[in-house]
Deep mutational scan, measured.
Amino acid sequence: MAEQVALSRTQVCGILREELFQGDAFHQSDTHIFIIMGASGDLAKKKIYPTIWWLFRDGLLPENTFIVGYARSRLTVADIRKQSEPFFKATPEEKLKLEDFFARNSYVAGQYDDAASYQRLNSHMNALHLGSQANRLFYLALPPTVYEAVTKNIHESCMSQIGWNRIIVEKPFGRDLQSSDRLSNHISSLFREDQIYRIDHYLGKEMVQNLMVLRFANRIFGPIWNRDNIACVILTFKEPFGTEGRGGYFDEFGIIRDVMQNHLLQMLCLVAMEKPASTNSDDVRDEKVKVLKCISEVQANNVVLGQYVGNPDGEGEATKGYLDDPTVPRGSTTATFAAVVLYVENERWDGVPFILRCGKALNERKAEVRLQFHDVAGDIFHQQCKRNELVIRVQPNEAVYTKMMTKKPGMFFNPEESELDLTYGNRYKNVKLPDAYERLILDVFCGSQMHFVRSDELREAWRIFTPLLHQIELEKPKPIPYIYGSRGPTEADELMKRVGFQYEGTYKWVNP
């Protein structure tokens, strides 16, 4: 592979701008107003304001973009700056750019259920340069409990009458099928589907988006991507930290609602779906819905739930269990780990287990898709061969690698495990991989909904998990304890083995 010439960040961002501006969906010269509902909250200060700053800094926003914060707290732009700027990672050389960014910011205080507050917000936006005809993007960085009041008031008082209007809704989209349907029906009564952007930030990850290209742009994968060759698929999300004093919020939802029903299920769809007619948003989402419709409700015998306990040999936070978090209700049975087996009941995947695993306070930070292939028929190497695996590593250190057998150097035919490896950090030294939120917010500006969740996708996802969630809430089974920093409950490994996964433990990928 030829040595790549190092590029400056300015040059890299210039390439990104060229890609972005050559499309006809990006209205570079139009006025846009980006409204952050819930501007005083954690999500706004840690993710949304920093993301908008990065896009502005790199010249990736339309030229005439204004940012308006809205929340109940009586704040000023200076207050917003004070709480969000520490997350910007701005350099001293960017000081003038930073001043320009905050000059485009404003803030309006108001209630979430008060019509007069929204009329005041609308008047404020109209007073901005060309504000009355601007395109408006409303980001709901809010708890779902206020979605209905907020969307109703936005629709009645704050819509642009000339430009387009788009609304970005953060997960969780309800707690179960019934609450999700209620919320979807409410929002759909106010906005068209092409105006609604239900954001799952995992769909903005580079390697998640790469799944489609790997599958449908490489001839070698087509013939082997089926039940005849693939023994099982494992989708993993692991965090090495616990709730760390923020367990009160987590306890309301648990690990299945927080990660599995959305992030992991979306990745499953991209692995299992048929080739779409095109890369058009609805063509892709149509195929994802077909996959979900082929999955039956989760069966309790295919589920393992766990909850982390303190590690007596650990240090600091590792010595504390979930129930030691003062914000967690006493005696909570909320799971911090889950392993679930699903089956896609169609011709391509009949009988292939899709194993979804996620948890907190585990032994490493990792998100990946792992396809394990069947054993080689007619073994001539005296059971020395391990199964081939194709691994798409989402985070950290984005990579695609194939675990395969090669001859060990020497005189004899002794096979050993090795890999074919594409590590993004080595291959793409001159490429700026956008943060997931950067990519998705740019998608909203461009009107691309491919990486957002459609209402029928959402409904099918909740259909699969709601009976299990209701059973857990009714019966309150005690989750299996696992030690902070471990791989999780051993019962999860036993479940995976029972459905056909072979864990060798003899080879570990190392970032080159």
Score class of each variant (00 low, 15 high):
residue 222 G to Q: 11
residue 239 E to L: 02
residue 177 L to Q: 14
residue 174 G to S: 07
residue 119 Q to T: 15
residue 75 L to A: 11
residue 256 I to Y: 03
residue 126 N to G: 15
residue 18 E to T: 06
residue 218 N to I: 00
residue 256 I to K: 02
residue 254 G to H: 01
residue 168 I to K: 05
residue 65 T to V: 12
residue 76 T to D: 15
residue 223 P to K: 05
residue 220 I to N: 00
residue 127 A to M: 10
residue 206 E to R: 05
residue 170 E to N: 01
residue 6 A to D: 15
residue 188 S to D: 10
residue 1 M to I: 10
residue 142 L to W: 02
residue 108 V to S: 15
residue 7 L to Q: 06
residue 158 C to E: 08
residue 24 D to A: 06
residue 257 R to T: 10
residue 253 F to E: 03
residue 135 N to L: 07
residue 58 D to Y: 08
residue 130 L to D: 10
residue 137 L to S: 06
residue 199 I to W: 05
residue 59 G to S: 08
residue 50 P to G: 08
residue 77 V to E: 13
residue 102 F to E: 05
residue 34 F to N: 04
residue 76 T to P: 06
residue 21 F to V: 05
residue 236 T to G: 10
residue 57 R to K: 06
residue 243 T to E: 03
residue 195 Q to P: 02
residue 193 E to L: 01
residue 105 N to D: 00
residue 179 S to R: 07
residue 235 L to Q: 04
residue 239 E to W: 04
residue 121 L to Y: 01
residue 108 V to I: 13
residue 250 F to Y: 12
residue 152 K to L: 09
residue 179 S to D: 04
residue 133 Q to M: 11
residue 118 Y to V: 08
residue 231 A to G: 12
residue 113 D to C: 13
residue 161 Q to N: 15
residue 219 R to F: 10
residue 163 G to W: 06
residue 182 R to P: 05
residue 238 K to D: 01
residue 161 Q to V: 15
residue 164 W to I: 06
residue 67 I to V: 13
residue 183 L to G: 00
residue 76 T to R: 10
residue 166 R to S: 06
residue 35 I to W: 00
residue 126 N to D: 12
residue 36 I to V: 09
residue 8 S to R: 14
residue 215 R to A: 01
residue 130 L to H: 15
residue 147 Y to W: 02
residue 17 R to W: 08
residue 59 G to A: 09
residue 253 F to M: 08
residue 43 L to D: 00
residue 73 S to G: 12
residue 249 Y to K: 00
residue 123 S to D: 12
residue 246 R to Q: 07
residue 257 R to D: 08
residue 31 T to V: 15
residue 248 G to Y: 07
residue 257 R to M: 05
residue 191 F to S: 04
residue 11 Q to R: 13
residue 62 P to D: 07
residue 177 L to I: 11
residue 104 R to S: 11
residue 242 G to M: 00
residue 89 K to M: 15
residue 207 M to I: 09
residue 17 R to P: 13
residue 71 A to D: 02
residue 199 I to K: 03
residue 52 I to G: 02
residue 6 A to N: 15
residue 193 E to R: 02
residue 246 R to S: 02
residue 157 S to R: 13
residue 173 F to W: 10
residue 38 G to I: 02
